[in-house]
């Protein structure tokens, strides 16, 4: 029992939307500094599972522990307080708010005057410029509304927002979908750097080659269940593809307890 305390330990997570059992008794573990690749078919439940961890979705069932302590995320504010940050698949930006405003959404620098809190816009802009510079994100003008930015720039801003506020757990739901080659490389590099600092990362992507560049471990989801888990060294792209589409069922995955009872023809 000398196993180190996991950064994240999720057990028995279940969530139903109408008639769809989106998540069915899902478990997930994440060690400090570990990079976990979460893969699965469209609609497998990857986004929903990560939203449970970021507090955006409240599951019907299941427990979450962060650093060995059980937490209950009733809202995203709770998860943020526990230093869980997420880059959402839909980016979650406010189109008619400027770049700085989006970066600081929900934690704006404030000045108190006569007991009323006002936005400290000057500090917000200065900090936002510094933040983006540190990440090497180039945005023409920090005061433009994000609706005027390109898809890739918007994505960079969503990533910058999640990465900049000292996360313990950083969830990235398809962060590279709209990015050009150099930018994808930079995101992978960002993942390596933050995980080297001890940040745990969950990376959701359909670009399987990326997983093999940065992940320590891969977890496969299939129709709302976590069906398999592999150390990156023990697997290859072909096997991951098989697991995702759920056709071949190798002997190895049968050994995995989480795969029990999932008989797919």
């Amino acid at each position: 029992m000398a196993a180190p305390i996991p950064r994240v330990r999720m057990r028995g997570i279940s969530k139903r939307y109408g008639t769809i059992q989106t998540l069915n008794d899902v478990a997930l573990d994440l060690a400090p500094g570990e990079v976990l690749g979460l893969v699965g078919d469209n609609g497998a439940g990857k986004s929903t599972l990560s939203k449970v961890l970021s507090g955006a979705v409240v599951p019907e069932d299941g427990t979450i522990e962060i650093d060995g302590r059980e937490v209950r995320f009733a809202s995203p504010a709770d998860a943020r307080a526990a230093h869980v940050e997420m880059v959402y698949q839909d980016l979650s930006l406010c189109d008619t708010v400027d770049v700085a405003g989006n970066l600081f959404l929900g934690r704006e620098p404030r000045r108190r005057i006569l007991g009323v809190s006002f936005l400290d816009k000057r500090r917000m802009r200065a900090d936002a410029v510094a933040m983006l510079q540190r990440l090497g994100i180039s945005v023409p003008d920090i005061t433009v509304h994000v609706e005027n930015l390109s898809g890739g720039q918007r994505q960079s801003i969503a990533i910058g927002r999640a990465a900049s506020f000292d996360p313990k757990v950083l969830i990235m739901d398809e962060p590279t979908a709209a990015l050009a080659v150099a930018e994808v490389e930079a995101v992978l590099e960002l993942i390596r750097t933050v995980s080297a600092r001890g940040v745990s990362v969950i990376l959701i992507t359909h670009r399987l080659q990326d997983l093999f560049l940065v992940c320590d471990r891969i977890q496969v989801m299939y129709e709302g269940r976590a069906i398999a888990e592999r150390q990156i060294a023990d697997t290859n792209v072909e096997e991951v593809v098989d697991l995702i589409v759920g056709r071949k069922f190798s002997a190895r995955s049968a050994r995995n307890t989480q795969a029990e009872g999932v008989a797919i023809s």
């Binding site: 955006a56 995203p76 504010a77 979650s92 406010c94 708010v97 704006e108 936005l119």
Partner: peptide, 29 residues
């Protein structure tokens, strides 16, 4: 005018109209 343009509350009012879910996910009530 001050409430709308200079306070976090005003910022959230605009944000809610643009993308309420994004503001909620940012931890705002």
């Amino acid at each position: 005018f001050v409430l709308f343009t200079q306070t976090p509350f005003g910022r959230y009012v605009t944000g809610i109209g643009a993308n309420a879910e994004a503001v909620r996910r940012a931890g705002v009530n």
